[in-house]
Amino acid sequence: MTKSLLSRHMRIAGLALAAGAGLTAGVAQAQDKGTVHLAYVEWSSEVASTNVVRAVLEQAGFDVDMTSLSAAAMWQAVASGDADAIVAAWLPTTHEEYLERVGDDVEDLGPNLDGTKLGLVVPTYTEVDSIAELNDHADTFNGEIIGIDPGAGLMGLTEEVVDTYDLDLNLRSGSDATMVAALSNAISNEEDIVVTSWTPHWMFARWDLKYLEDPENVYGGAEQIHTVVRQGFAEDMPEAHAILDAFEWTPEQMGEVMLMNQEEGADPYENAKQWVEENQDVVENWLNG
């Protein structure tokens, strides 16, 4: 091969390599849509929903960071811009106070799940049927109500319940996990226990439970879980905003994921990816906005 011909081949190879590198860079740039920061509270329902949303956003080409916070800190993170979105806003009652505080700094995209409920829950074998009857059976419940994390709106409502009904039971704070552990232990021993709880929650699929009647209606009626984003998110990340705006599912669908997460050694993120993969017909509706 002559020097001129060799030089020509080298120039062509160099141009091809450069073109290939440019194409690769272009693809990488097209796929680099930025990072969506999601905040959530460590409730089984919100662990399920937030991981599913993460998996869907990743399918759309976004990177996703998740941060677990208390309910109050979760709302503040969205309001301050430290988080882009939450899919864990219980409205109009449970998180009403948080929304009132930061309403001007966030955008409510509406409900992503309808048909929630809050209240005090006991095993169905318990003779008590109403909150108003608890004082007559205070000793049966060891003089306490087993609650969750102290920053939760549900705990604030339950404090109102204690005052409204003048209950002789102490509200004990903890977490979703400690509440469920106490409930499981009591049921195993066929003992009475009263806990703060909500629907949807996987424990209703595992055990026979009932809500205590709330004649004073302190807990209010059925609620919804809303998606809330920071102000400016729609302008900064319109595609991610559209996906979050379209995200909506049923308590039954959420329950499927929550039950998967209760298996020994379960990974909520891997379970969410599996659910998303197996429910692409639902997911496509979210991706298409």
Rank of each mutant, 00 (worst) to 15 (best):
N170K: 12
L23G: 08
Y219P: 02
D114I: 15
I145E: 02
V283Q: 02
V64K: 08
E239K: 09
Y165M: 03
M260W: 13
H95W: 10
V102I: 11
D166G: 05
I225H: 05
A48K: 10
V161A: 01
N271D: 15
V53L: 15
N285L: 14
A25M: 11
D245T: 14
I12M: 07
G221F: 04
P215H: 06
A88L: 01
A30H: 12
L91E: 08
V41D: 11
E127R: 08
E191P: 02
D108G: 05
A73I: 02
M155N: 13
R11K: 14
H9M: 14
Q76N: 12
V229M: 02
G81K: 12
M258F: 01
A272K: 02
T2E: 14
D105L: 13
T126M: 13
A234T: 06
V257Y: 05
E213P: 00
E144P: 00
R101T: 13
N135S: 08
L259V: 10
R8E: 11
H241R: 11
L244H: 05
E133G: 06
A25G: 10
E278Y: 06
Q231V: 15
S68R: 14
E96I: 07
V41G: 10
E46F: 15
P268I: 07
V47G: 01
T126S: 15
Q29H: 09
D176N: 13
G22A: 15
E190W: 09
